[in-house]
Simulated scan of single mutants.
Amino acid sequence: MNRRTVLRTATALGAAGIATGIPAHTAAAAHATGATSASKPDRRSPLRVQVVLFQGVEELDLAAPYEVLAASDHFTDRDVDVRYVALDGPRTITAAFGTRLRADHRWAPEKADLLVVPGGGYARREDPGVWAEIRRGALPRALAAAQRPGLTLAALCTGVMLLSAAGVTRGRPCTTHHRAQSDLVEQGGVLKKARVVDDGDLVTAGGVTSGLDLALWLVRRELGVDAALGLESMLEYEARGTVWTS
């Protein structure tokens, strides 16, 4: 399980009770003993998630998916490992509104099941952000090279435009922030007017706050409905909008 504070664990267990109808103290006891109401703990391999950082990335774009996916292991027997990664190796980046973040892990999509690409800075073409990364070219090339069986590329907001620059969205159902949708279509994406678009190994979402819905959908898809319901209760947020699936 990912490192959590005692308070966070207690909150999650309480939410599990709300979501499943099991009193919080019963949920806590089950958690402590490793028991579940239906089966033994899941022994499958961990769900490995990497969230991509780059200079000028939007804070909410990266934080919402990270927290939802990292907290999901409170509601599943499967281990969930969520990491920030940066293409240039472990480094500190400065996000769009000045937050400094440390990516402690190297770029290693071959060791991920989900690679999540946030957006940021698309409206400011000369500043750090998506446009700067597209001009530099290294990140789009790395995303194109990352594609393989067993890896899902997920992106939200203008992070989808990094996948577009990589050629990943061409001819495929997808969505992005409303201000970038015309660019996405011009570059060959098949735009779907949905909050989240799931085309199998490519999952995209709209602008900024849709990162919550993207992550909740990925949790539901990868870990099950009960895990998603538990997270919604803990977060006091209900998934909104339409999910388009192929």
Score class of each variant (00 low, 15 high):
178 H>L: 15
238 E>C: 14
228 A>H: 05
76 T>G: 00
40 K>Y: 01
53 L>T: 14
127 D>C: 07
180 A>D: 15
28 A>S: 05
130 V>D: 00
115 L>H: 05
74 H>D: 01
32 A>K: 03
206 G>M: 07
127 D>I: 06
239 A>T: 13
179 R>V: 12
201 D>L: 12
56 G>P: 05
174 C>G: 06
196 V>L: 07
117 V>P: 01
171 G>Q: 05
203 V>M: 06
217 W>C: 03
92 T>L: 08
162 L>W: 10
70 A>G: 06
41 P>R: 08
223 L>R: 09
111 K>V: 11
19 A>I: 04
4 R>M: 08
69 L>A: 04
142 A>T: 08
129 G>S: 06
59 E>N: 07
37 S>D: 11
155 A>W: 14
155 A>R: 03
68 V>R: 07
197 V>F: 03
88 D>T: 00
104 D>Y: 14
159 G>N: 06
186 E>W: 09
178 H>A: 11
113 D>H: 06
83 R>L: 07
224 G>D: 07
148 R>N: 04
91 R>F: 02
126 E>V: 01
21 G>V: 00
26 T>D: 02
159 G>Q: 09
134 I>P: 10
195 R>L: 10
136 R>E: 14
125 R>Y: 05
128 P>T: 10
27 A>S: 07
169 T>R: 05
22 I>Q: 05
34 G>V: 04
16 A>Y: 01
30 A>R: 00
46 P>V: 15
173 P>K: 13
19 A>D: 01
239 A>E: 11
208 V>H: 07
207 G>S: 12
196 V>R: 13
120 G>T: 10
158 T>S: 15
225 V>W: 14
5 T>K: 02
103 A>D: 12
122 Y>R: 07
3 R>D: 15
138 A>R: 01
212 L>Y: 09
240 R>S: 15
143 L>D: 05
218 L>V: 01
